[in-house]
């Protein structure tokens, strides 16, 4: 049975319409998928990877980065408190780094033999979050796992004690330190 030209055209148009509908559905599905992916990206943590220089070295579990300025008094207090903690052995298993923007601001601080110091504008840009002093903890993957702004009324002793737990260091030397702190 032969079909007339008009029936053939109608069937063809129907086929095209069905195809167009499927195509629109497909595009809509992909769009929804893209929206969800985008939502996941924005909702999740901002993955900011720290430069190689600031990642933990020599078997350290994490790096404690102190972002310091030359002039602010709290910066000097924080640097001194962390220095004392390092010499007391409270920071075992952590790499501690002082970060300055310029040589000039580094020069305003008392030099320390115990703590590594960088005065590098590029590194500074990677860590600086618009406030000094800031304490950041960087894990082995270069991810900032903890960041804290330090204020003049912050309890520096508690902050320093808190750092090990934040960095996820749980070895026996931590518990051995408790009697030292109380004595």
């Amino acid at each position: 049975m032969a079909i007339s030209v008009s029936t053939a055209l109608a069937l063809l148009a129907l086929a095209v319409a069905v195809f167009a509908l499927l195509a629109v559905g497909g595009v809509y599905g992909r769009l929804k998928q893209a929206e969800r992916a985008l939502a996941d990206m924005t909702f999740g943590e901002i993955a900011s990877s720290m430069p190689e220089e600031l990642r933990p070295r020599d078997g350290a579990a994490a790096t404690v980065v102190l972002t310091l300025d030359g002039e602010c008094p709290t910066c000097h207090q924080l640097a001194a408190a962390v220095d004392a903690a390092v010499s007391d052995g409270v920071m075992t298993g952590l790499r501690v780094v002082r970060m300055f923007a310029t040589e000039e601001s580094r020069g305003r601080h008392t030099p320390s033999d115990l703590v590594e110091t960088y005065a590098d504008p590029d590194l500074w840009t990677a860590v600086y979050e618009g406030y000094t002093p800031t304490v950041s903890i960087v894990d082995r993957n270069g991810r900032v796992v903890h960041r804290r702004f330090v204020y003049p009324d912050t309890d520096l002793g508690a902050l320093v004690r808190d750092l090990r737990a934040r960095a996820g260091v749980t070895d026996h030397s931590a518990s051995l330190l408790v009697p030292q702190e109380t004595s």
Binding site: R36, A39, T42, F43, G130, Y131, F149
Partner: peptide, 24 residues
């Protein structure tokens, strides 16, 4: 932030994750 904070109240359970991410 280091100096200030800004709060917005929802007056109910936390919104769906996609709305939260839109807001953020």
């Amino acid at each position: 932030g280091p100096h200030h904070e800004a709060t917005t109240w929802f007056g109910g359970p936390a919104p769906r994750p996609d709305l939260l991410s839109t807001l953020m």
